[in-house]
């Protein structure tokens, strides 16, 4: 019977393959080998989840530790899916590193295996909602970095390809952002009785989404490149407020999204 005591047996080979995959992706051009090791690690890790699921007799999403297992799995799975489509190697490496962070937390802090999840969080939407947001934030973060790079070289040489790359990242990131938000809405309906309650976190998520929507529409014409790029920085600040800043706002005292982890 597989339980948390067997976690290391699965986690160590997984981490080894993923470290190898990230190194290959970052420093060499052997992308297929990198892909192989990512998938190999994902397979071992997935086996643990399936066996644990069978042993528990229920989906593993009732404790913090179980939820982190699923984060890791879906981060890498979605990262790989995006790679197969978009060939952004840094995105695979990022998702591998993030996934490993969650694996390490599960190894180093065993007590979280039984860390209680309040009833409202016990939902099939929890993991996809959070995974979509984690990936979307990373892609939009990358878009901001590329955008700022473009801003600094704006007067010297404009790079049309870089501009297209920025736009593409925003589209992909925005798609994921909205998917995360819509899944959250469906979940909220089941858990809290309403799909959109203008909770402070929701309000700022709305602002973030609207800010990227503004960028996307502004970029329909190629005229206001510089304003659009500055706007991208603004949108990312809004995103950071949604992610981290909301907890510190006086307006968010009663937010249902402020959890103590």
């Amino acid at each position: 019977m597989i339980n948390w005591n067997n976690f290391l047996v699965f986690a160590i080979p997984t981490i080894l393959s993923w470290v190898l995959a990230s190194v290959i992706f970052t420093f060499s051009k052997k992308n297929k080998l990198g892909l192989f090791f990512s998938i190999f690690g994902l397979f071992i890790f997935g086996s643990f989840i399936v066996l644990l699921w069978v042993n528990l007799g229920r989906p593993p999403m009732r404790t913090m530790g179980e939820t982190r297992l699923l984060y890791s799995f879906f981060l890498v799975a979605t990262g790989l899916l995006s790679y197969l489509k978009w060939r952004y190697k840094w995105l695979v490496s990022y998702s591998l590193v993030m996934a490993m962070v969650f694996v390490f937390i599960n190894i180093l802090k065993p007590e979280i295996h039984s860390k209680n999840l309040m009833p409202a969080l016990q939902s099939i939407w929890f993991v996809p909602h959070v995974t979509a947001y984690i990936l979307s934030y990373s892609i939009l973060g990358a878009a901001t970095i590329v955008g700022v790079k473009q801003l600094f070289q704006f007067n010297k040489k404009e790079d049309a390809e870089l501009m297209d790359f920025t736009d593409n990242l925003v589209y992909i990131g925005f798609g994921l952002l909205m998917l995360g938000m819509l899944m959250g809405a469906v979940w909220a309906k089941a858990a809290w009785g309403h799909y959109w309650s203008w909770d402070p976190k929701e309000t700022w998520a709305f602002i973030t989404a609207a800010a990227y929507l503004f960028y996307i529409h502004l970029r329909l014409s190629n005229k206001y490149r510089k304003i659009a790029l500055w706007y991208l920085v603004f949108a990312f600040i809004m995103l950071m407020i949604t992610w981290k800043g909301v907890n510190y706002l006086p307006s968010a005292k009663n937010s249902i999204h402020v959890y103590t982890d």
């Binding site: 589209y171 798609g175 998917l179 014409s221």
Partner: peptide
Amino acid sequence: FSIGCFCMFWIGNNKRRKG
């Protein structure tokens, strides 16, 4: 809307429309 968003994620920015 979510099918549309998945398409956005999958198709990215369509360069043809520019300008």
